[in-house]
């Protein structure tokens, strides 16, 4: 089966410093995959290249066999890759519903409609409501997102990503800063979305419990290099990985 994402020799330098060095990997369609590694390993940099925030210094990125290396973010979004950010990235002075609508309008290219009120577009409203129901955010539809609890803000960002109907979703530490209950809820949501939809999820996590419980395939990044890859079981037993994490934090 062709991988949904194939990365070859991806490298990114910042000045003389190599944040990601010569990483090659592929993500199988439909397989919930994780990218782990200690702080500063290069995970976010890796996602930034995949999503077009900045181009790689060298290497290629193939999405569904198509070369998307160096494309601007808005083009990559339209080819079918969505992403969330490590630090919550939403529209704070807009209502929850407007947050989702904005992404839907972008997805359908309806932003050029200068005079049609978005709230009269039955299709957009229906799909917004469906996404909000999926996330359990319906009761907050008309609340500006700046008034939401932290965990709900992070859910709104997932909603924005879903509203682009991407085939590959990159989640950069989706549970960062969450309480145990919020983490539980987010993990269950990701699991459910991965099971119910054909979307492929590729996430980074610092919470090993989350990683080992949801993912079927794990890549380990260490100081910009790919250290190991395998099933959760294989990674748990990998000696190099244990050393990179100084033994402790993997035993969860």
């Amino acid at each position: 089966m062709t991988p949904i994402l194939e990365v070859k020799h991806l490298t990114r330098n910042f000045g003389g410093f190599q944040a990601v060095s010569d990483v090659s990997l592929s993500v199988t369609t439909g397989e919930l995959t994780a990218l782990i590694g200690p702080n500063g390993a290069g995970k976010t940099t890796f996602y930034n290249m995949l999503s077009g925030k900045f181009p790689p210094s060298s290497g290629t990125i193939l999405f569904e066999g198509k070369d998307i290396t160096g494309l601007p973010p808005y083009k990559i979004a339209h080819t079918g890759i969505g992403r969330s950010f490590q630090i919550t990235n939403i529209f704070s002075r807009m209502t929850v519903r407007q947050n989702i609508l904005s992404a839907l309008i972008a997805h359908y290219g309806k932003g050029a409609s200068l005079f049609s009120p978005y709230w009269r577009d039955a299709k957009l409203i229906r799909e917004t409501d469906a996404i909000l129901a999926q996330l359990g955010l319906s009761e907050f539809s008309d609340v500006e997102t700046r008034y939401l609890a932290y965990g709900d803000k992070r859910l709104v960002e997932i909603g924005i990503v879903l509203a682009n109907y991407p085939r590959l979703i990159l989640l950069d530490e989706p549970t960062a800063g969450m309480t145990p209950e919020e983490t539980e809820r987010m993990t269950a949501l990701i699991q459910r979305l991965a099971d119910e939809t054909k979307t492929t999820f590729f996430l980074t996590e610092h919470d090993m419990k989350v990683v080992f419980s949801v993912s079927r395939k794990i890549f380990v990044l260490h100081q910009g290099q790919l250290l190991a890859q395998g099933t959760p079981q294989e990674i748990r037993e990998n000696r190099k990985v244990k050393e990179a994490y100084l033994g402790g934090s993997l035993d969860t």
């Binding site: 601007p72 979004a77 969505g82 807009m94 904005s102």
Partner: peptide
């Protein structure tokens, strides 16, 4: 609404597919 989104958060708007 897209214009408002750009004002609110340029980065998020680009990554949802807006030029």
């Amino acid at each position: 609404l897209i214009l408002l989104s750009i004002r609110e958060n340029k980065e998020r708007t680009t990554f949802t597919g807006i030029n």
